Amino acid sequence: MPYDQHLLERVEKVFKKKKMKPVQKNMIGGLCFMVNDKMVVGVTNDSLMVRIDPELYPMALKKKGCRHMDFNGRTLKGFLLVESIGLRSDKDLLYWIELSLNFNPKAKAAKKKSTPAKNRKL
């Protein structure tokens, strides 16, 4: 899973300034930052993955460098990719991270994979 190391460092710096320690997890083709067991943002290639309120989706797509996020051939509802042109300034990056953090309390956590029960002799 390749990702832009500089963008990753910029994202980490934003969370550090906010005094937050999100869990980093490899998923959805990149390195994701999890808050309350829910993805907030992630870095894949040179783009920022962002999870936002689906109601804000149409407005967000109008921003520079923003596009639908497709994963395994399907568009993920409420997830966007922001390319480097839309992340040039720290203010741009902060906008997307805060938009995602604002949605986080309302977002649903992904279903945890259940582990199969072990066979037991009675």
Rank of each mutant, 00 (worst) to 15 (best):
N119Y: 15
F103N: 10
G73P: 04
L8F: 11
W96C: 02
G86S: 01
N119W: 14
F33C: 06
F33D: 04
V11Q: 00
L93T: 03
D92F: 00
K77G: 04
V41T: 07
L101D: 01
V41R: 03
N45L: 05
V40G: 05
R10Y: 00
G29C: 03
D90P: 01
K113A: 14
P105Q: 10
P22A: 05
Q24M: 14
H68D: 12
L122P: 10
A110I: 08
Q5I: 10
I97A: 00
K77R: 13
N104Y: 01
L99P: 00
L8W: 04
S47V: 03
V23Q: 09
A107Q: 08
I52V: 15
L56S: 12
T115F: 10
F15C: 02
K108P: 05
V11Y: 00
L94Q: 11
A60M: 14
R120H: 14
K25R: 13
L81T: 12
N72K: 15
F103A: 09
R88G: 10
R120P: 06
I97G: 00
L81W: 01
L61M: 02
H68I: 13
P22C: 06
L99C: 05
I97E: 00
L101N: 03
C66S: 14
F79D: 01
K64R: 04
T115G: 09
F15H: 03
W96V: 05
K77N: 11
N36G: 08
L94G: 03
G65E: 00
D37P: 02
E9K: 13
V40N: 02
S89E: 03
K25I: 13
L80Q: 05
S89I: 06
T115C: 05
K118V: 10
K121H: 09
L94F: 07
K21Q: 15
K121F: 07
K21N: 15
K18G: 10
D70P: 03
H68K: 13
